[in-house]
Design a protein around this nucleic acid. Structure first.
Lengths: 183, 183
DNA sequence: GTCTATATTCCGATAGAC
DNA sequence: GTCTATCGGAATATAGAC
């Protein structure tokens, strides 16, 4: 992995671990054993880094969408849910949740990229649910978009809430989402 | 309202507007037209202020629980949901969501108080749902605690997600929560 | 691409006068 | 209870050498 890629990777972890406003370029330089100024060579400003992290997430989302395009709705749903399972195993929260709470403090370009990213997730999950209902794999009463909002809300908040109530509550919520879709 | 109370009030708004790590004592002193040092007189450290804000929320939660104790489950549920409606009208997020994403950066006392607060909300909503099901006002298949986790997740994340997709999505999610409980 | 060195700004916090 | 003044530290960011 190039230094640039390592910085993006570390920055992403730090945002989802501590929040965008609580990590510094020093945190990254320390871990990579380079100097503060070297991080600034790759990303002149913190917003530049934030934008690149969002671009990276968007790119990986596209890869996941394309990589599962020919699979069944259940496999696609599991691919979506697995994103959160992995984040939970790291003890972190998701990028959308972390940056949404900081939205009023980030620069407009980052806010814009975040909105695009969140809407692409919403559209993907909506399409998965729509396809699943058509194929009689999923059952739900609301519009597919509304159901997608409910499920994404559950997963996003499951990461945050289970930090406070009980770590197991993440899985309680995730399993309930799955069970609810099948009945 | 005393200066101390005004500081708590402003600090609460700032946490839910920008996040705990993005506001400063200067933000508060500027608004109250007093000096930085005066804020420190009331709250020696930022953590002291954070703790007092959490105590204030906990106290108000207790008042709401006691004030609705003799009401119907539907009225209690509406009291719970109205908390989020009000937050949405201010364009902010809830205290639990804001601080959960910052959890790894706050001092242990604040983390502890936040966990107590979140669990009290969970217990309250659980008891509302339990009572509502017993009285045949609500219908759901999961345990009352699990259903409470789902609903709280939906509302917490509705505030965050609707900042990014569409402000109206907050109400879409809220209405779906209500409708789903009645079927 | 990485370094040393530094400029600048901001923030949390405290001492001591009024 | 609020003020002026200030300390110490941390963070973003840049200049210029290697």
């Amino acid at each position: 992995m190039s230094t640039r890629e390592e910085i993006i990777h570390l920055g992403d972890q730090l945002i989802r671990d501590k929040g965008f406003n609580a990590f510094s370029f020093y945190d990254i330089s320390k871990k990579l054993k380079i100097k503060n100024a070297s991080v600034h060579y790759h990303f002149p400003t913190k917003s530049d880094l934030g934008l690149s992290i969002l671009d990276d997430h968007t790119k990986k989302l596209h890869e996941l969408i394309e990589g599962t395009a020919t699979k069944s709705p259940m496999v696609k749903l599991n691919a979506f849910l697995s994103i959160y399972t992995k984040i939970k195993s790291e003890g972190r929260v998701c990028l959308v949740g972390s940056l949404a709470t900081d939205l009023n403090t980030v620069d407009p370009k980052m806010a814009k990229a975040l909105k695009v990213f969140a809407n692409e997730i919403l559209e993907w999950v909506t399409s998965i649910l729509q396809e699943g209902r058509t194929k009689k794999v999923f059952a739900f009463q609301e519009s597919a978009r509304t159901k997608a909002l409910m499920i994404i809300s559950n997963m996003l908040a499951a990461l945050q809430l289970s930090r406070l109530t009980d770590e197991k509550d993440f899985y309680v919520i995730q399993q309930t989402v799955i069970k609810d879709l099948k009945s």
